[in-house]
Write a protein that binds this DNA or RNA. Structure first.
Length: 507
RNA sequence: GAGCAUAUACCCAAUGUUGGCUUUGGGGACGGUCUGCAAAACCGUCAAACGCCGGUUCGAUUCCGGCUAUGCUCUCCA
């Protein structure tokens, strides 16, 4: 069996994954800021770390997956007005801050479930951990790496960088930062421009505020993740994940904070997913080019030619390696939709074939490997075994899907008769069934999007199909065509199967 | 300015090579299967892809050097 290797952003290398505690994995992923609705770009990290989580579980690890909710302390524009993002939006929408937070948290959870993402083990909120954050800030001050100015506390980056490798994760050089850091109002409070806020004093009109040793205020953005990851995963844990854009300054700051407080870099493996782009440009607030998830699902964005289902989007993301950029386009989404359909239909077919096989041979693997076509049988087995290798190689879901696709013609041919049923050994057939279920459903987290859930509708369809069948047997084609054509107008496609059966799909 | 990407067959895109037929999705084309006819679906084929110039090599898309083009990041950000 091969070993799991992951690309560690911290060392910029692929490394064998060895958990700190054998059999257990602690994983922290930066969650959403619930001051607004999630857009397509946000879907990527959560789907990425979902299949990583699923794969670790598949490997038999006991995983504690912590993903936070940022519901405070996140500045829209640090320094400028010292305005809390949440508080600002709340005033705008005439909502209590926590009401706003609840609304978008609910919406976020709904979207995650649409994507069939598993829930994290712990989902802590920033506002629920103010005490821990203050404690950490106090430690940093005691160690001499933070200073207070007018009720705000800043981290002394220059001092830190003199002793510790600041910028290692993001590949920044402190001197460069001096030159390129944006000019901000309120910079005068900081000793140096690259210093970041641990605690901000709240102006009188600020709604979200907490008491602290430095007066009333609210926590800085970076400290929440440090506080919560330490609390639930320990001073050092296995995996820290998030979007690539968080490397700097967010994760770099987390490293600095934890290094002072806990004497360790917080995580051993740093995994970062790449961005989703729109016409080559990152989807983000500043570019005003984001498509919200609800718009994706309903197709109500000017750029969208049609709605795209959550599974189509999930599949679209899975088709590309998580460290590559992924460019949005209608064409690519439509291709994903078709590809997923093709793959899923073959999977449904395979389940039937494998079930029949099991019925014929309840003993399962007890049957001798009698493949009518040993070469094909070997090829199938090889393609299946490679799936594990691909996932072990830094979660290469794109290659996994390519191999599964390579098996689609085999499955279809098994049904179509181009390949005889006994060409593959019973054991291989059952293995195929197991691997497809394991990979498609359990690891990649895909699920069927059954259109015919409605019992009544299914009943009506069966009735219509029955009537049409009668008509056809009487060679009353005008009636049978009428049924077929009118259903087509309603968007329901009838399909005459080879074996005389009829199936239907919603266009 | 600094840093980092990318350049793929008829078209669009993904994936990859410790250097020797890599693979995949979509579009399109052609042939076939199925069918009362169709549509759809399915099977097969699309014969030599890997930006340009050099180098190393028996051999480079893959390694090295240079060049061109395009794009991204360096601020909050997933």
């Amino acid at each position: 069996m091969s070993q799991l290797k992951v690309h560690n952003s911290y060392t910029r290398q692929k490394e064998v994954f060895t958990p700190i505690t054998p059999g257990h994995v602690g994983m922290y992923v930066c969650g959403p800021t619930v001051s607004g609705e999630s857009h397509l770009g946000h879907a990527r990290p959560f789907i990425t770390f979902d299949f990583i989580y699923r794969y670790l579980l598949h490997l038999g690890y006991k995983v504690r997956y912590v993903r936070n909710i940022t519901d405070a302390g996140h500045f829209e524009e640090e320094g400028r007005e010292a305005e809390d993002k949440i508080a600002k939006k709340a005033t705008l929408e005439k909502l209590e801050p926590m009401e706003l937070v609840q609304k978008y948290t609910n919406l976020f959870h709904w979207a995650m479930h649409q994507f069939n993402n598993l829930d994290p083990s712990i989902e802590p909120t920033a506002t629920g951990h103010i005490v821990e954050q203050i404690g950490m800030i106090e430690t940093i001050m005691k160690e001499g790496y933070a200073y207070e100015v007018n009720g705000s506390v800043y981290f002394d980056v220059k001092k830190y960088a003199a002793r510790y490798p600041y910028g290692k994760l993001s590949g920044r050089v402190l001197d460069d930062l001096l030159e390129t850091t944006r000019d901000l109002d309120g910079q005068d409070e900081k000793h140096n421009r690259q210093d970041f806020a641990l605690w901000k004093a709240a102006p009188p009109e600020h709604i979200m505020r907490w008491k602290s040793p430095w007066g009333e205020g609210f926590p800085g953005w970076h400290i929440e993740c440090s506080a919560m990851s330490t609390k639930y995963l320990g001073e050092q844990f296995d995996i820290h994940g998030g979007g690539m854009d968080l490397q700097f300054p967010h994760h770099e700051s987390e490293i600095a904070q934890s290094t002072i407080c806990n004497k360790h870099v917080p995580a051993r493996y740093w995994l970062h997913n790449n961005m989703i782009t729109l016409n080559g440009r990152k989807m983000g607030k500043s570019y005003n080019n984001q498509i919200r998830l609800t718009e994706m699902f309903t197709g109500t964005h000017p750029l969208l030619l049609q709605p795209y289902s959550p599974m189509t989007i999930r599949f679209f993301i899975l088709q590309t390696h998580y460290r590559s950029t992924l460019d949005f386009s209608n064409e690519a989404l439509q291709a994903a939709e078709k590809g997923l359909k093709r793959l899923w239909e073959a999977y449904e077919l395979l389940k039937k074939i494998a079930a029949e096989q099991t019925a014929l041979d309840p003993g399962g693997t007890a049957s001798p490997a009698t493949a009518g076509d040993p070469a094909l049988d070997d090829k199938v087995r090889k393609l299946l075994l490679e799936l594990d290798e691909f996932m072990d190689d830094d979660f290469n879901t794109a290659k996994v899907l390519a191999n599964l696709f390579e098996l689609v013609p085999v499955i279809n041919s098994l049904k179509g008769g181009q390949i005889r049923r006994d060409a593959l050994s019973p054991a291989t057939l059952q293995m195929m069934g197991k691997y497809f279920t394991d990979y498609l459903e359990n690891i990649l987290g895909l699920k069927g999007e059954s259109a015919g859930d409605d019992q009544k509708l299914t009943g009506v369809m069966e009735l219509l199909i029955d009537i049409r069948k009668d008509a056809r047997s009487r060679k009353d084609y005008s009636t049978s065509d009428k049924i077929r054509n009118q259903l087509l107008e309603l968007g329901i496609v009838l399909k005459d199967e080879k074996d005389g059966g009829v199936s239907f799909t919603f266009a």
